[in-house]
Design a protein around this nucleic acid. Structure first.
Lengths: 238, 238
DNA sequence: CAACATCTGTCGCCGCCCCGACATTCCGGA
DNA sequence: TCCGGAATGTCGGGGCGGCGACAGATGTTG
């Protein structure tokens, strides 16, 4: 996922339907292009909710709360995690275009996990009571929503496979390939990587040392640079 | 779950969206548990596909094949796995009401995993070309399909959490609680359990020995009986 | 510039679990 | 009924990785 250095501090309330927004929404619902979202459908979805802005570290929702709404992320990255204050396990990271909180909302159960903004995040918040009629009225949007959910499911299934029978070195290499931006840089602390993989910081460090000594990456303060992509891919052994 | 008996025929073709229907949906979405697509939903989809029967051990589809259709399981259990002939990793097990193969089909990619019948399986096979019109025409079905997919996603997320920082003993205990039938029996070989958890048969055996010595279960040939559910739950440490 | 918080890099200990090997038990088919 | 395949039960060796500890490096704040 390419991360854009967008400008911070936005987030106004009611805005006129924006073509930019429409384009973004159209892109956000999966890579499939045989079903096009028409402008009026987009407007309907936007009209059913409102945009919220979150500072880094703040929560969109917490596990156990009543699930009254779902969120479509427009900008930024959100970390979905579960656990108490002492130890938390990261379930997934969600970027622009991802839908979060909809599972609990559709099933009318408390949120199963917490959602915390990693950086500056803006998201479209849609209440359950207002979403269902829209989805009933506009099957195209329902299908788009479906494809988004299924894409998330596939990513999670890949993660299960990544956790099974894979050494920490392979997992780290795979994560770096996933998370690198267009300049081949990954801006994550080693502790953050460890929490993403459900492993310990020390093991991540050891794996990075291995990759460094083989010339695949360079490591710095809060930044890792991919030097030799093929070498990293070989270490990931995918 | 009590089901409204007086519910008339759902959503016929060109009728305007029904708010009543939306409200009913909102109420009925809770507590769907393992029953994902319900029999009446299946009936509505029957016209778009045809039933296929599979003997134990045969495949509904294999990873890498072109994804032309999705399947809704009507009876039996299907194992979704990935890997070559030497070593395979089980991604999930799917029972009656589950939808499989839809991810790849909607995204128009080859199947990401293989689906093999564990026991005698009958499933409704639906081609993409015929499914999409039905979903467009009947938002109720589309929403149920959506909820089915999201439920699968939640189960997979739970599995991720189960793999992180959980000892084999805890995982085995959790699986037994999940998989036990109404008589408290689990009909799986220890090797099958091991493949489900991505661990080794010996470790599963050791964990079962532990549970047996603590009086939580009894073990037999291809069968495990839950004797003390609370004890097993304690061992699972959920 | 100094004090502080955070992050990186390493080491050693120890426990869980993978793996190979083997004996034993159970079940189904000829 | 007998036999072969499959499943269970157990042991020991070895390795990966969690955990605590600590030093040095790097931003950050007053």
């Amino acid at each position: 996922m390419t991360r854009q250095p967008g400008k911070p501090g936005m987030g106004r309330g009611g805005s006129p339907p924006d073509i930019q927004h429409a384009m973004w929404l159209a892109r956000s619902f999966g890579r499939t292009d045989y079903l096009l979202l028409r402008p009026e459908d987009l407007a309907a979805l936007e009209g059913a909710g409102s945009y919220v802005s979150k500072y880094p570290g703040t929560h969109l929702f917490r596990q156990g709360e009543a699930s009254t709404a779902a969120y479509v992320i427009q900008k930024g990255t959100v970390e979905l995690y579960r656990g108490d204050h002492t130890e938390s396990m990261v379930v997934a990271r969600a970027g622009a275009g991802s839908v979060i909180g909809d599972i609990a909302m559709f099933r009318d159960e408390p949120y199963f996990q917490s959602a915390r903004a990693v950086d500056a995040v803006t998201a479209l918040r849609i209440e359950r009571n207002r979403l269902l009629p829209v989805l009933m009225e506009r099957p195209v949007i329902a299908l788009r929503w479906l494809v988004a959910g299924l894409s998330q499911l596939e990513r999670t299934q890949r993660r299960v496979l990544g956790l099974l029978h894979r050494t920490v070195l392979e997992q780290v290499a795979g994560l770096l390939l996933d998370e690198a931006d267009d300049r081949g840089e990954i801006h994550l602390s080693q502790a953050a990587i460890a929490r993403l993989l459900g492993t310990s910081r020390q093991s991540v460090n050891e794996a990075l040392a291995e990759l460094r000594s083989s010339g695949a990456v360079e490591t710095g303060y809060r930044v890792i640079r991919l030097i030799d992509r093929p070498a990293a891919a070989r270490a990931a052994a995918e």
